[in-house]
Computed example of a mutant assay.
Amino acid sequence: MRIRQITLYHVRIPMVVPFSTSFGDMYEKECVIVELKDEEGISGYGELEAFPLPDYIEEFLVAAKFIIEKVMLPQMNSWEFSHPSEFQSRFSWIRGNEMAKAAVEAGLWDIYAKKTNRSLQETLGGEGKFLDVGVSLGIQKNPAELVARVKDCIGQGYKRIKVKIKPDHDIAYIAAVREAFPEVLLMADANSAYTSADFDRLKELDRFQLTMIEQPFSIRDFTLHARLQKQIQTLVCLDENIRSVEDVEQAYQMKSCRAINLKMARVGGHTEALKIVDFCAKNGLLVWCGGMLEAGIGRAHNLALASRKEFGFPGDISATDRYFNEDIIEEEFKLKNGRLAVPQKTGIGVEISKKKIEKFIDSKQVIKLG
Rank of each mutant, 00 (worst) to 15 (best):
Q5G: 00
Q5N: 12
I6R: 06
T7V: 11
T7W: 00
V16G: 00
S20G: 00
Y27T: 13
E30S: 12
V32W: 14
K37I: 15
I42E: 12
I42L: 11
E47C: 05
L48T: 06
A50N: 08
P52R: 10
P54Y: 10
P54S: 08
F60Q: 04
F60C: 06
L61K: 09
A63N: 12
A63C: 05
K65D: 14
F66R: 15
K70A: 14
P74Q: 09
Q75F: 08
N77Y: 00
W79H: 02
E80V: 03
E80N: 13
F81C: 02
S82E: 14
S85D: 11
S89F: 04
F91R: 10
R95Y: 10
G96H: 08
N97M: 11
K101S: 04
V104K: 08
K114Y: 06
N117S: 14
R118C: 09
R118D: 00
L120K: 11
Q121M: 14
L124Q: 07
L124G: 04
G125C: 02
G138Q: 07
I139C: 07
A148P: 00
R149T: 01
K151D: 15
C153Y: 09
I154Q: 11
K159I: 01
V163N: 03
P167I: 01
D168T: 11
H169L: 00
A172D: 15
V177G: 06
R178A: 09
E179C: 01
A180Q: 12
F181G: 05
M187S: 15
A188L: 01
A188S: 06
D189G: 09
A190Q: 07
A190E: 04
N191E: 01
N191K: 07
S192G: 11
Y194L: 06
Y194N: 08
D198W: 11
D200H: 13
F208H: 05
L210H: 08
T211R: 12
I213S: 09
Q215D: 03
Q215V: 03
F217I: 00
S218A: 14
D221A: 09
T223E: 13
R227M: 12
Q231R: 14
T234A: 14
L235R: 15
I242W: 12
R243W: 13
R243N: 13
E246I: 02
D247F: 10
Q250M: 14
Y252N: 13
M254S: 12
K255Y: 06
S256C: 01
A259E: 06
M264N: 15
G268I: 02
G268W: 05
A273M: 02
A273D: 04
A273L: 02
L285H: 03
L285A: 03
L293F: 03
E294P: 02
E294A: 09
G296A: 05
H301T: 05
N302Q: 13
A306E: 05
K309V: 13
K309E: 15
G312C: 09
R322N: 11
R322H: 15
I328N: 05
I329C: 03
E331G: 00
E331R: 14
E332T: 08
N337Q: 15
R339A: 08
V342R: 10
V342A: 08
Q344E: 14
T346D: 13
T346R: 12
G347T: 04
G347K: 10
G349D: 10
V350C: 06
V350Q: 11
K356C: 03
K356N: 12
K356G: 03
I357C: 05
K364G: 01
Q365N: 14
V366W: 02
L369Y: 02
G370V: 01
G370W: 00
